[in-house]
Design a binder for these strands. Structure first.
Length: 673
DNA sequence: ACGAGGCTAAACAGGG
DNA sequence: GCCCTGTTTAGCCTCG
């Protein structure tokens, strides 16, 4: 998506060689290239088009300057694709290319925002539409350029130079018309970008690539046009002195203008612009050395501190480091911000997991469709309701439809709460008595399959009863029978949680095998193996729908965790007026929800949740889900499914990340076979 | 308050 | 005697 330097910036050998030559040379080169490119310009260009001559010349000059700049800057030039030397767009194509979201921006989004699938989709569609427009525009531009070239040739052959003045005006007019068209396009883009920003989907840094329009204005538009642009964008111009690459993506801002004075580089601060304010960017970025540029720091990019809510402009890496140490030292505020960021990341991961799960459910549905016609659409992720039932439900997920009596939502256990994993749930890893009762027919197999990696890596207790797990282990075996030891192995292999406290859970496993009639011990040649009596399993207990007690505990735990967090957060926000959410959640529903969830929590909403499990709302954020969904007792709306596992993923990577996790709560691992 | 289901802990027995 | 396997009992928790 990102055009790191437009193709036009590609180093063009011939052009470079002619770098300092006259416009005619450039034109010749251009023609040569055009031909080589298979674009045989028609020599029958109309006389009227001769008016474009000057424009073309200006373009050539711009191109020349661009090339020169490339040579000077060097750094970027190497990255360019040299395979399209024939491309004749003097003005950086980049400026005409869609303002697609760059990887950096995307990263920001990923780091700071939570996008709903819908948002992402819209975003993508918008980007695609823009790209299309740009492409068309670009083609138009190229055509125009070719025509100009042809005209120039004709002119040269005719040895004319007379109507110059007359053409001048004409050209200017046409230029303006064309530029305006481009402007419009660019404005559209900018509008789009701003919209994104407003939505909190995109957060551009001041030092980030300037908008294409700017480049355009600089590259070939006379000062008046720049002025126009300024008016339109309300941005300030900054004299960059020598054209320099502001950022890797900035090639588009070629400081070309032969006519334009000191190539003013319009750097727009998108955020400021959004607020109707302009910001003057430090023109020092150019001074950034390649080495510095290469110095990468997750919190530093495009000359801006990426610390959530900061965005302070740091001229160079060292100043950034100073800034980091001074402004973001280890204190309450930073800690709070860090925690918030954690939540944000968790939500993103949750989102990702949800979508993954959705995909899996879809695939799963298509594959088992025939066997599960009436079954509810695959596992929805109910964060909460997940209970595994040893009862009917889990019984052969593949062949047994969910029992009629149970809620239709199968769900994937979300484990102890979504985010849970990283934060609270980890706490619950211990001997908390929360087994998802069998109320919901949770397809344990699918859940385990979907969250396999998670369970394997995160020490999170699976939300299933021992009986369910044992049954699953047995059913997964080729012969539907396992020895006790094999069952143990399955537990440890599949769940990180069971890699500790072996004495306890093994005892529980044995206890369950003996206790439940559904487990049948069969003497074998090699010893005894355990099998499952599905019939017995099914009759174990009538399905009932109820809340899960253990989940309540999770809530409490979550509350315990979040309370301090919220307190810290709020205190921090209060004292420092830190726009913790401004950057990340600006207009972002998810984060807003998160924040409100936190507030709710502070307001004791938790109590409500604990006592009333029916407050589920579709738009709930993961955070909220984490706190409230657990108690949900009714089948969740498919759209409301919170990605359980998602957290999963999160958990996977974050066990060590959870600052509040108290590993000491857990008995030290004893063992493992 | 009670019963049911689930979990943990532990005692106990038999076999290798 | 130790360990593993298997059974059983007890106590606790939470929900309905």
């Amino acid at each position: 998506m990102m055009q790191e330097s437009g193709p036009e910036t590609k180093s063009n050998d011939s052009a470079v060689q002619n770098g300092g030559s006259s416009g005619n040379h450039l034109l010749e080169c251009t023609l040569r290239e055009s031909r080589s490119n298979g674009e045989t310009p028609s020599l029958e260009a109309g006389a009227a088009e001769l008016a474009h001559l000057q424009q073309h010349q200006a373009l050539q000059v711009a191109r020349q300057l661009l090339i020169h700049q490339q040579q000077v800057s060097g750094v970027k030039a190497h990255k360019r694709n040299d395979k399209q030397p024939s491309l004749q767009v003097p003005v950086s194509v980049a400026m005409m290319t869609p303002q697609v979201i760059t990887p950096q921006q995307m990263q920001q989004i990923l780091q700071q925002q939570v996008l709903t699938p819908q948002q992402l989709q819209v975003l993508i569609q918008q980007q695609q539409a823009l790209m299309l427009h740009q492409q068309q525009l670009q083609e138009f531009y190229k055509k125009q350029q070719d025509q100009l070239q042809i005209q120039l040739i004709q002119q040269q052959h005719a040895g004319k130079q007379p109507k110059e003045q007359q053409q001048q005006q004409q050209v200017t007019t046409q230029q303006l018309a064309f530029q305006q068209q481009l402007l419009q396009m660019q404005q559209l883009q900018q509008q789009h970008l701003m919209t994104l920003q407003r939505q909190g989907l995109l957060s551009l840094q001041p030092g980030q690539p300037t908008l294409p329009l700017q480049s355009l204005a600089q590259g070939m538009i006379p000062t008046e046009l720049q002025q126009l642009w300024k008016e339109v964008t309300g941005s300030h111009t900054v004299d960059d002195g020598a054209c320099n690459n502001h950022s890797s993506l900035d090639l588009s801002t070629t400081c070309v203008s032969s006519t334009a004075p000191p190539k003013p580089s319009l750097l727009i601060n998108p955020q400021a612009s959004t607020n109707g304010q302009a910001s003057v960017l430090t023109p020092k970025r150019e001074s950034m050395s390649h080495e510095e540029y290469m110095q990468s720091h997750p919190l530093y990019g495009h000359g801006v501190c990426k610390w959530p809510g900061c965005e302070a402009v740091c001229e160079d890496y060292s100043s950034f480091i100073k800034h980091l140490n001074s402004e973001h030292a280890l204190d309450d505020r930073s800690t709070a911000q860090c925690r918030v960021q954690m939540q944000v990341v968790q939500q993103l991961e949750l989102q990702l997991s949800k979508d993954k799960e959705r995909l899996q459910a879809m695939m799963s549905h298509l594959h088992v469709k025939s066997t599960e016609p009436k079954a509810s659409p695959q596992p929805l992720n109910l964060v909460s309701s997940v209970t595994l039932s040893k009862t009917a439900s889990e019984s052969s997920p593949q062949s047994l439809p969910h029992t009629p009596t149970t809620p239709t939502t199968p769900l994937t256990p979300i484990t102890q709460g979504p985010s849970v994993i990283t934060t609270t749930s980890i706490h619950n890893v211990g001997p908390i008595r929360r087994r998802y009762s069998d109320k919901y027919n949770v397809p344990i197999s699918s859940d385990i399959a979907q969250n396999q990696e998670f369970y394997k890596n995160a020490e999170v207790r699976p939300p299933f009863t021992y009986a369910s797990l044992i049954r699953q282990a047995i059913l997964e075996s080729p012969e539907k029978q396992l020895t006790l030891n094999e069952i143990y192995n399955w537990f440890t292999r599949m769940f990180a949680y069971f890699r500790r406290n072996a004495a306890t859970w093994k005892n529980a496993v044995r206890h369950n095998l003996s206790l439940h009639k559904c487990f049948v011990r069969v003497e074998n040649v090699k010893g005894a193996v355990w099998t499952v009596d599905e019939i017995e399993f099914q009759k174990r207990r009538p399905q009932k729908i109820s809340g899960n007690p253990s989940l309540i505990k999770n809530i409490q735990t979550s509350h315990a965790y979040c309370t301090p967090l919220n307190a810290a957060l709020q205190a921090s926000m209060a004292e420092n007026s830190i726009p913790l959410y401004t950057t990340a959640s600006m207009g972002n529903p998810a984060l807003t929800s998160l924040a409100s969830a936190m507030r709710e929590e502070l307001n004791g909403v938790i109590d409500h949740a604990t006592s009333n499990g029916s407050d589920s709302s579709p738009g709930r954020s993961p955070m909220q889900a984490m706190h409230h969904v657990h108690v949900k007792e009714e089948p969740l709306d498919p759209d409301d499914n919170e990605g359980p596992l998602s957290l999963v993923t999160t958990a996977n990577q974050s066990p060590d990340f959870d600052p509040d996790r108290d590993y000491e709560d857990e008995p030290v691992n004893e063992d493992m076979d």
